[in-house]
C-alpha cells in the first residue's frame, strides 16, 4: 500500500517539460522528504498529484494504493485520500474557516447524510487547541488577511480534520518563524501513523529537524537525482546543491 509515482512526466500548457520522469514510492507509515533547488520541479510534482489543471501529464503514472489517480478529478483525488498542503493557500472571501472545513467533510459523506455539527466543533476545537489557534479563527474568512504563519497552520488544521491517507506538504515551512514551525511540526507529527504516508517538500533542512523523515530525496531538473536516509538532509545543508553540477543530465 503506497502512493506510487512511476516515471512521471508533465509539461506546462506551453509544452515546457517540468517533470522529466519522476519515480518515487511512498509506503504508508513513512515520511519522505524531497529537497532541491528552486525550479527543480518539487512544487510541480505536488500540484500534478493533486490534479492542478495548469499542467499536462505526458507520461507515467501515479497510483494511490493501486488506484490510478489520473482517472480521478481533483476533488475525487482529495476524497480518495490525497491531501496537498499549499505553499500559497488561496483566500476565499466571505467563507468562514469553520464552514469551509465543514463543507470539505460534508463532501466525504454519502448523499443525504448530514455532518453532526456538535461533534464537528468538538473535534475542530481540539485540533485548533493543539495548533494554538485562537477560537475567533472559525468565523474568519478562509486565509483572508492571514499572516504567513496563520495560513500554514490553517493548512495543517485542514490536514488534521480531513485525515488523508497521504499528506503532501509543499514548502509548509517557508515564511515561518521558529515558533510557528514547531507548532506546525507538532500537528504533522501528531498525524504520523502506520496507515498514513507523508511527502514533505522543502528547500531547507530546518523543517526536517522537527519532522524527522525516513527518507530524503533530492530533486533537480525534473528528476530524483539522489535518495538516502535523514543524513542526506544534513549533508545538503552543509555542502549545498553544488554536487548537482557533476550530475549533468543528458
Amino acid at each position: 500500500m503506497s502512493l506510487h509515482i512511476h516515471d512521471l512526466r508533465a509539461t506546462l500548457e506551453d509544452g515546457t517539460e517540468i517533470l522529466k520522469g519522476v519515480t518515487l514510492d511512498i509506503p504508508k507509515g513513512e515520511v519522505h522528504a524531497i529537497m532541491g533547488p528552486n525550479g527543480s520541479g518539487k512544487s510541480t510534482l505536488s500540484k500534478v498529484i493533486a490534479g492542478h489543471e495548469g499542467y499536462l501529464v505526458t507520461g507515467g503514472s501515479v497510483t494511490l494504493d493501486g488506484q490510478d489517480i489520473f482517472s480521478m478529478s481533483i476533488d475525487e483525488r482529495s476524497r480518495a485520500g490525497i491531501f496537498l498542503a499549499f505553499q500559497y493557500p488561496s483566500e476565499v472571501p466571505g467563507v468562514s474557516n469553520a464552514n469551509f472545513i465543514r463543507a470539505a467533510l460534508q463532501a466525504r459523506l454519502p448523499q443525504g447524510e448530514e455532518l453532526d455539527a456538535v461533534a464537528y466543533y468538538h473535534r475542530l476545537y481540539a485540533k485548533m487547541d493543539l495548533l494554538e489557534i485562537d477560537r475567533k479563527f472559525t468565523a474568519r474568512s478562509v486565509n483572508e488577511g492571514f499572516s504567513g504563519g496563520e495560513k500554514k497552520r490553517n493548512e495543517v488544521l485542514q490536514l488534521m480534520m480531513l485525515e488523508p491517507l497521504y499528506g503532501i506538504l509543499d514548502e509548509t515551512d517557508s515564511g515561518l518563524d521558529i515558533d510557528a514551525l514547531k507548532i506546525v511540526a507538532k500537528g504533522v507529527n501528531a498525524m504520523r501513523a502506520p496507515h498514513r504516508g507523508f511527502l514533505l517538500i522543502t528547500h531547507y533542512q530546518r523543517l526536517l529537524d522537527y519532522i524527522k523523515p525516513d527518507y530524503v530525496h533530492v530533486m533537480a531538473e525534473g528528476r530524483i537525482v539522489r535518495s538516502g536516509g535523514p543524513e542526506l538532509a544534513h549533508e545538503l545543508e552543509k555542502d549545498g546543491y553544488e554536487f548537482l553540477k557533476d550530475l549533468a543530465p543528458a
Binding site: 493533486a50 478529478s73 481533483i74 496537498l84 483566500e91 480531513l162
Partner: peptide
C-alpha cells in the same frame, strides 16, 4: 481558477 483548485483539492466538487 486557483481559488476553485484550492476548494476542489479539499474534496469539494466544482
Amino acid at each position: 481558477e486557483e481559488e476553485i483548485f484550492y476548494l476542489r483539492a479539499r474534496g469539494i466538487d466544482s
